[in-house]
């Protein structure tokens, strides 16, 4: 039916209903029925029953149309911003090693055990950089063992079993005992940063490393690099809109867990 017809019918119906109601209930006294609990109970009961009946009836219809507030559903069925992931990400070797390191640390609740798993990779990286910069390999190894390659004692203790980390407060020690895996991750991230700084200082600069970047640079955000430095899945946005109207089994959990992991790994 056309718009005007509908408008007319609606107005008429509204007027008739309102007028009839007004005239009909003129006779009702404004009552104070609150003192009668029976009425209240029956009221609630009837209302609840009616609502439940309607909702159950509605549910059978809603199975066809899962999103109740939008008749035709979402305009797009899936996230247009995303694309299928075909190739592995770069720089994910450390993440795999960290998973093993954390498991090793949890075995005997010793952070040292976990660091021993990560140590060879970091030592190799530093030694390679030192040798490429002209140092003697044995001198570099000695510097690693003695911890003189950096000012950061925590990093030095990660790369050498002979260097003790600085004394931490009892609270920190308790936390490391409770969560040895996280302690391994924290110290490894710190050690990697120190190794990168020291290594970059050692090697001769290559043309282009600090060339001007004239074009707009878009770094892949942490959200999309799904194997972060701590090896955990970190899809921080989790922004996929499901088309079943809300039954999101894993996404949002991934979002929040991911957020925790993101804060965790960034320490």
């Amino acid at each position: 039916m056309r718009d005007q017809e509908r408008w007319g019918l609606v107005a008429l119906g509204l007027l008739a209903t309102a007028g009839g109601v007004v005239l009909a209930i003129r006779e009702f006294e404004p009552t104070t029925p609150g003192s009668d609990p029976g009425t209240l109970v029956s009221l609630v009961g009837v209302g609840g029953l009616a609502a439940a009946a309607w909702l159950v009836y509605d549910r059978s219809r809603s199975r066809r149309d899962p999103v109740p507030w939008s008749n035709a559903g979402p305009i797009v069925r899936s996230d247009p911003e995303d694309a299928p992931r075909r190739y592995p990400l770069s720089g994910s070797r450390l993440a795999g090693i960290l998973v093993d390191a954390r498991a090793a640390a949890r075995d005997r609740r010793e952070v040292e055990d976990g660091l021993a798993v990560v140590r060879p990779l970091l030592r190799t990286a530093y030694c390679e950089a030192a040798v490429a910069g002209g140092q003697d390999r044995s001198a570099a190894t000695e510097a690693l063992d003695a911890g003189t390659w950096t000012d950061d004692r925590v990093a030095a203790s990660v790369l050498s079993p002979h260097v003790d980390p600085p004394t931490r407060s009892l609270r920190r020690r308790f936390r490391d005992w409770l969560y040895p895996g996280r302690a391994v991750t924290r110290r490894t991230v710190r050690a990697v940063s120190a190794v990168a700084t020291a290594g970059d200082a050692a090697i001769a600069p290559v043309i282009g490393s600090d060339a001007p970047r004239r074009a707009e640079t878009y770094e892949p955000s942490l959200a999309v690099r799904d194997v972060g430095g701590d090896g955990r899945v970190r899809d921080l946005t989790g922004g996929r809109e499901p088309d079943d109207g809300g039954r999101v089994e894993g996404d949002r959990r991934g979002g929040r867990r991911g957020a925790a992991a993101g804060r965790e790994g960034a320490q």
Binding site: L94, A196, V206, E219, P220, L222, R225
Partner: peptide, 30 residues
């Protein structure tokens, strides 16, 4: 990408290799 620890480490090793190429006599550009 150097916004993760793994990326930092991989980046350092890559720059080390480029420096080694350079010291072997190749004109290296990053």
């Amino acid at each position: 990408s150097d916004n993760t620890a793994g990326g930092q480490l991989a980046g350092l090793r890559r720059r080390t290799r480029l420096a080694r190429c350079q010291s072997l006599g190749a004109r290296t550009v990053d």
